[in-house]
Design a binder for these strands. Sequence first.
DNA 1: TTGCTGTTGCGAAGGGGTTGCAGGAAGGAG
DNA 2: CTCCTTCCTGCAACCCCTTCGCAACAGCAA
Lengths: 156, 156
Amino acid sequence: MSTRGQDPVAATVERVVAHLREHGHRITMPRRAVVDTLARAEGHPTVEQIAADVAERWPGMHLTTVYRTLETLAELGVVTHVHLAAGTAYHLADPAESADGAHHVHAQCRSCRRVIDLPDGILDGVRRELAASEGFALEPHHVALSGLCRDCADEG
Amino acid sequence: MSTRGQDPVAATVERVVAHLREHGHRITMPRRAVVDTLARAEGHPTVEQIAADVAERWPGMHLTTVYRTLETLAELGVVTHVHLAAGTAYHLADPAESADGAHHVHAQCRSCRRVIDLPDGILDGVRRELAASEGFALEPHHVALSGLCRDCADEG
DNA sequence: TTGCTGTTGCGAAGGGGTTGCAGGAAGGAG
DNA sequence: CTCCTTCCTGCAACCCCTTCGCAACAGCAA
């Protein structure tokens, strides 16, 4: 309670740590490091970026450990990933979203590689249309849309 | 002319071969093999599938050559690719579409991995919405949507 | 504090894709 | 038809990202 509102990063870390403990996982320094990094991360870092971030503050941590920690957190639903045109990005799941199974939609700029979050319902119309015409059950959160962001479109 | 309408595969191969020749590329057996395979392919094969198909009829052809041939054909705009959640799929570009720069939209079933083609305009609404709200210029053809196809949704 | 067991670090292996090089063939010149 | 230049191919080595096997370590419960 002491950290709530004052240090959202620490609060997030504690929340995830509690979640890990509840599910019988051990709380270790490397796990705290990955969660801390994800909590501080803006946007949707790749494994490479997460590992680089972690290595700055906790040198010596092995890349394998990052992968395994992300895997563990993913099993708990604490982190989510999106497939991009090249690579995969990870991010902490929003607690409110993970509770009801919702996710947000992503789009990636093919020029600057930045990932932006989109409102969850933006593909609802397409989802209904695909369900009706093709019987295809669209899962909008699994793959990022591709295009050019405002900045890159202006420049190019 | 003798093949037109009777053997669409051969006609397609000849069309592409002519295109290659026009652009100063040489006509070789491996290139014919790849184009022939793409012309016969239903759907959107990955490099692995293309190579397997080619190997059945032209044993000894190297995987590297498949990659390089696809690269060459892509530069000419003869083939297009889509990024999937895992891997990349290739297919011959529709001549009519490549003329005006249009492409169709793809969706992939995350269970059976099948790729289905969608009407080109299905993301137009989303594209307009993204342009207005985020300034994001959506390019609907570059990444496949993800979800469950009718058959897999029924089974699961 | 002790002991069980989940985790970590490390090296090695695996899978997908790319690159450098030397030999070989396409296709234009003569 | 033959020669010659240049491009293309096959091969092998390599690179990048991710996973695996194993021995040592460290949570955490008793």
